[in-house]
Design a protein around this nucleic acid. Structure first.
Lengths: 242, 242
DNA sequence: TCAAAAGTGTTTGTCCTACACCCATGC
DNA sequence: GCATGGGTGTAGGACAAACACTTTTGA
């Protein structure tokens, strides 16, 4: 392994998760207090990221970001855009931060999004991290607001045609959970009966005999997504039409 | 302007064009003959590309590639993926080539595709360039076969939802030209009457009074794509459903 | 007047939409 | 036995699919 950094190349991760009926993104606190009143105090948030090491691939770097922050491995990652404009860093805060780190002013950032299933416990999550609702983000450093917007647009368009939705829910999910996931991400309302009808017609969404447990109501049936079946049926068999 | 290169960052362009009822891609000849029988002779093709200059943005670099090769400006460019794996360069040919240029073995390539309208004349095209049918490409250097495949997949998926098709045809086009463009790119057959019906229902595809000239048959009506109208109608008003 | 491509309507079936009530369970 | 969400069917309308002939022009 060559652990030296490629000093102008980083990977940033937009880590997404559904929680409390909202799409959440994982951010890292960025602080720098120079005790000099002429300099701006930095106290905002950024996307978790990492420089690419000489012997790491881009995707591996995205994995590493997630592993270092949460202790968990993460398999599904989606590269959606690369940011490398000469004038990416504009604000004084960002320039100050970059200089304080001895980093290059022009960094190329390959951006990925990672989706964490809503039932997953992240026990060892780094203290500097916090989930924010996508709709009420704090002040963000660099062009990270833009990156998050782009990630969200990409998710919204891919979720219509790709089986991305199953990354958001547990491996065994109820149809109502699946519906809520669509509704939350796309910010639409779907008719429950029509949704169930459509889903039932998909061979790759397979009903289990198993039912929910520990709920004080009628327990609902569980379903699984079959990747195998999915990859062998026609390409245009989309999940929903919206 | 700072004309120094960022020596590990390049932009490669998949330049696409419809011609002879086929999707074509523009490639550049790569030759290196070392007159040493122990070394492989290089005589294959690669995507046109360019290192990113210190004062150029990524998109500007894509423009520059096209301008240098054809003398023409090109506005629409689509960034679709970035390639930066440590082991991108595998073959002896590629290693030899890279070393002969004094370039770095690990280069990050931001890939764009550019679409050239089928009626556009490229008068000043560089001699080293040639159009190839996507379906019968020659031997390609580096991972450029992969890049072209990825570009094509991206075009096919975007062309359903985005107004990308209009980049392939002339500014004033006939409906049959538009239909053929879809058919060629997606490799499907469409019903002419149904296609016309669907297109007529789109407010942003506007019929002109003008007709084709200089054809020895019934001249067909010309249409234009109105970007303004398009951007003001609902997002889900797709062009075709396939 | 012929060749070549442009242009046009109708029917059939499928799929999306809208909508309200009973069911099964845990407490 | 009641509160809570789970689960079900039908009718109407919109849109996609299938299909063949007439029209217009230049040569």
């Amino acid at each position: 392994m060559d652990f030296r950094k490629i000093d102008n190349l980083s990977v940033d991760c937009v880590v997404l998760r559904l929680e409390d009926n909202a799409l959440n993104v994982l951010l890292r606190k960025r602080t720098l207090n120079l005790y000099n009143e002429n300099l701006p105090e930095i106290d905002d948030w950024v996307l978790p990221g990492h420089y690419v090491l000489k012997s790491n691939n881009l995707g591996e770097t995205a994995n590493r970001v997630f592993k270092e922050l949460t202790g968990e491995d993460h398999l599904n990652k989606n590269q959606f855009r690369t940011y490398g404009n000469a004038a990416r860093i504009k604000s004084d805060r960002d320039l100050l931060w970059v200089r304080s780190r001895g980093a290059k002013v022009r960094t190329i950032t390959v951006a990925y999004y990672l989706i964490v299933a809503s039932n997953k416990d992240l026990l060892d999550m780094d203290d500097s991290l916090k989930w924010f609702k996508l709709k009420s983000l704090p002040q963000l450093g660099f062009d990270h607001q833009q990156i998050i917007n782009d990630a969200y647009e990409d998710v919204k368009s891919k979720i219509i045609t790709d089986p991305l939705i199953f990354d958001f829910v547990a491996i065994k999910f109820t149809l109502n959970e699946l519906q809520m996931a669509f509704e939350t991400i796309l910010d639409v309302e779907l008719d429950n009966r029509n949704f169930r009808k459509k889903v039932s017609s998909k061979s790759y969404i397979v009903p289990l005999e198993e039912k929910q447990k520990g709920v004080s109501k009628k327990p609902s049936r569980l379903y699984m997504f079959s990747k195998d079946v999915y990859s062998h049926v026609v390409e245009t068999d989309y999940i929903i039409n919206k």
